[in-house]
Nucleic acid binder design. Structure first.
Lengths: 77, 77
DNA sequence: TGGGATTTGTTCGTATGTATC
DNA sequence: TGATACATACGAACAAATCCC
């Protein structure tokens, strides 16, 4: 599911949807770390700003927890 | 002094006036930092674009100095 | 003790598109 | 047409926490 820059759906919401799906499917298991912001930037060819907006959405949904200096983790069931 | 979106005075000029007054009154002392663009956006419920236009006015008036990655500071007397 | 690498947190700089008046 | 205002997106710099050697 490559990200489309010409979509009506903002890039950051596309990424949030991708990560949300990986969490729902178990590809990203509870307590496991998400790829770092740097990794997500590279993998999707997008900016840090956009990556952080996506993660912020998931954080507000209670799906992930972020720890400064460490990373972002999938919330426990 | 809440900002009025239905005023004849543009929002960015209203914010510039507010900040100018805080500098003049000493509420914002020389060398002290202004609230970040992010803070000003939240506090006044306006966009970053508009916040930056307001700060640009003060910068042109020599009232503030902006440093990338750090913030905007009240100019020294 | 110290230093370097990695990671998230925060800030300003710039550009583009959309909508409204 | 131009000015205003918002949202999106990418860059860049600085700061702080963590980790490992």
């Amino acid at each position: 599911m490559p990200i489309k820059h010409d979509s009506a759906v903002p890039v950051y919401r596309q990424l949030a949807a991708i990560l949300r799906e990986e969490i729902a499917s178990g590809t990203l298991a509870p307590d496991s770390p998400l790829p770092s912001e740097s990794r997500l930037m590279q993998e999707h060819g997008i900016s840090r700003d956009t990556v952080r907006k996506a993660i912020e959405i998931l954080r507000e949904e209670g799906l992930v927890v972020t720890v400064k200096g460490k990373g972002t983790y999938v919330a426990e069931g």
